[in-house]
Design a protein around this nucleic acid. Structure first.
Lengths: 236, 236
DNA sequence: CTTAAAGCATGATAAAAATCATGTTTCAGG
DNA sequence: CCTGAAACATGATTTTTATCATGCTTTAAG
């Protein structure tokens, strides 16, 4: 079970102005602070499962989370990668649905939970938060629609290159400035690209042979971002 | 150029309670009614183009619209089908982006235009509307993520069956109770499924041979919805 | 009415990607 | 430190899907 971590307040949270709450009124931040529940999830732990009912939203203080569907044939499809400052669990809550995706910690992660009733009531009272929420939803919708188009139209080689760039955008590099700052299995990379694990492995090897990346177990170093962008064949 | 159609008021609009405005306060509906601009778009006419700046949202009074991206290689990907009561143009507006998709009338369509400033200000003042807007965005995000998973994991045969069912859900049947109530070219169907036009044509022929559909030019009759659901291999 | 263009259809072929098979490496738990 | 399972890697094969080619049909413009 998750353990309670050092309680910093929402008022002084390092992620506050990096999150959807950036425009929320102090008064409501205080309310959220009082009712939030903080937890640490170990790598691999599940925050919530597809099919469960949402009881609130999760706000990442530090760490990394993957959100994924399980397709009809049992194959995982990773639909979002989340980091500090991101919230999750809002989609189902706002739609009034059950969760359509599962959330799993990719590393040890500190997370605050905000109860549904509080979140919804603040959303109704604070137009600043509501507007940021709409912006967030719109941005996610945009990303999903672009990804959808690329899935339909681009070959796997291009999609893998794009995925590596996306991982870099999301989690950045380690101190060395070239190693992707997250450890994903080849299977997870494949499930992000939307391909068979073997295909992902094969293409990563090709990328290595082409001098675009360096592979060291789960560590992936980006040697030529320029070449990767070219391989991804992005216009937008 | 579009022509002005019979001005019914927003207050008495047949789509009012079938739209995102269902919970909006009378006061704001009145304001919208005063500033709205009504137009008729002929089949094939463009409401807005990918890359343009949004100046407001469009609200469909009657008719059908397709929203589509053009992929990096010039191929169209249809991302949404819209009908009476739906609004469009909000995604870019809320994100503060330019349009990432183009909107084209699939048949003669009556549309009201609501200026950006008004829509945004009402959104900030009316939590009822804001909440419905969030619900709408969440629902669209959900649909996009499901579609994304299916694009990544399902064979084209299943996706075509699913697309036919989706068209039926969206536009329903004609009076005969079996003919899909929209005319789409084979190419458009392919661009909805995310496949080559020839593949869509070929599979439609197979579906016909299997007795699932009947084809008469652009008219598509669903003979066995049950078989189609089975072919789509849907769990959710 | 006729005719050119667009759309539809279908077969043949090529390319892309998945699956299957097998061996190697890595790593966590005893 | 050992050992079995999982993950990684790579070749061979099969399946899926796109592309190319060609002819037919419908449709809209003159």
């Amino acid at each position: 079970m998750p353990q309670i971590h050092d309680q910093t307040t929402c008022q002084s949270c390092s992620q506050r102005f990096n999150s959807v709450f950036c425009k929320a009124k102090e008064e409501y931040i205080n309310q959220i602070n009082e009712q939030k529940i903080c937890n640490v999830y170990k790598k691999g732990q599940i925050l919530f499962n597809e099919g469960a009912y949402p009881f609130g939203v999760y706000c990442i203080n530090d760490g990394k989370i993957k959100l994924s569907h399980v397709g009809d044939d049992g194959k995982e499809q990773i639909i979002r990668l989340l980091k500090a400052g991101d919230i999750l669990g809002y989609r189902a809550l706002l739609s009034g649905d059950r969760y359509s995706a599962s959330a799993v910690a990719l590393e040890d992660t500190q997370i605050c939970f905000i109860p549904k009733e509080l979140f919804v009531s603040v959303l109704k009272l604070d137009p600043g938060l509501a507007f940021e929420m709409m912006k967030l939803l719109s941005d996610e919708l945009h990303k999903a629609e672009i990804k959808l188009t690329h899935l339909a139209q681009k070959p796997i080689r291009e999609r893998l290159a794009e995925t590596l760039l996306f991982i870099k955008e999301t989690y950045g590099f380690e101190e060395d400035g070239i190693t992707l700052n997250v450890r994903l299995s080849r299977e997870e990379i494949a499930n992000l690209v939307g391909t068979a694990t073997e295909s992902a492995i094969r293409l990563l090897s090709e990328f290595k042979k082409d001098g675009m990346v360096e592979l060291d177990g789960k560590k992936i170093k980006i040697l030529s971002q320029k070449q990767l962008i070219k391989t991804a064949n992005l216009q937008d």
